Simulated assay, not measured.
Amino acid sequence: MFIARCRETATMEIDEGLVRKNRFCRGGRGGLKCSGEVEDQETINRVIALLIEALRRLINWCVWDQWWIGEKEKELLRLRNDAETKFRGRYSDDVVDDLLKVIDGFIQYIAEFRKYWIENNIGDEIKKLIEDLRNGKADVVIRSTGKALTISAYGKYAILEVSRLGGMRVRLIFRKIRGVTIDVPDIFRKVMGRDEYEDFTKILQGLRRGFAETDEGVDGVRPRMGTAQTWQVILWSLLYQVGFVHL
C-alpha cells in the first residue's frame, strides 16, 4: 500500500495513450543509450505495463522531494543511538567506538548526498523526467534477455531504471556524485577469542554468500551492495570490512 507524501500526486494522473508516445529503443553496446527502434508490439506492451507501474510508485512516493533523504538520516541516527545504548558497557569502548565510526561514515554520506541533491537541483530533474515519461516526450531504452526486462530513462544526473525478473525493481541511479571512504575495522575479531573467531569465519562465508545471491554485485573489482535497507548496508560492510561504500 502506497501513501502519498505530497499533495501534487492528486493532479499527476497517468494516461496510457500518452505513455505510448515515448520513443522506445534498444540499448546499444559500449554505453550507447539507443541502437535502433523497438517495433515489436508484444515487447512494447510489456514495457508500457512496467513503466506505468513504476511511474505510479514514483509519484505516490513523491521521490523528487527531499523527505526520504531526511528519513534515511533519522534511521541512521536511531541506529547509532541504539548501538550506543545496547553495546556501551557490554563491549569494550574500543569496539563500540569503532562501530559508531562506521555508522558516522554513513551519516556523513547522507549529508554529502543532500548537498549534491540541492546544488544540482536533482529533485527538479527527477520531476521533469517523470513528467516527460507521463507525456510521451522521453527516450525509453529497453534491454531484454530471455524473461528478464530492463528499461531506463536518462537525465543529466539521474537515471531511472526499472527491471522485472520475477519481481519488479524500480531504482534511481545518481551520476557525478563522489563516494566516501569509510574505514571498517574487523570488529568481530576484536570481540571474539582466537578459536571462536576461527569458527565464526565459516559462518561469515555463509553470510557473504547469502548477500552475494541477493543484493550484491561487483563494480570493477570491488563488491557492491544495492538495497533500500540501511541496516543491511551496515551489516554487509562489517562482514567484508570494505572501505568504499555508496548509499
Rank of each mutant, 00 (worst) to 15 (best):
M1T: 13
F2H: 09
F2V: 15
C6D: 14
C6L: 01
A10L: 15
E13I: 12
R23Y: 07
F24W: 12
G28T: 08
G30A: 08
C34S: 12
C34R: 11
T43R: 00
N45F: 00
A54N: 09
R57T: 09
N60S: 13
W67L: 05
I69G: 05
E71S: 14
K72D: 08
E73K: 15
K74M: 04
G89E: 11
L100G: 05
L100V: 08
I103R: 05
I107Q: 13
Q108V: 07
Y109C: 02
K115N: 14
I118S: 01
L129G: 12
R134H: 12
D139Y: 10
V141C: 06
R143G: 10
G146P: 06
K147F: 03
K147Y: 11
L149G: 00
T150C: 03
G155F: 07
I159E: 15
V170C: 02
R171L: 07
L172R: 06
K176V: 00
G179V: 10
D183E: 14
K190H: 05
G193I: 05
D195M: 05
D195P: 00
E196L: 03
T201A: 01
L204F: 00
F211P: 07
A212M: 07
G217F: 04
D219K: 14
D219S: 12
V221C: 06
P223A: 04
R224V: 15
G226Y: 13
T230R: 11
V233W: 09
I234R: 10
L239Y: 07
V242N: 13
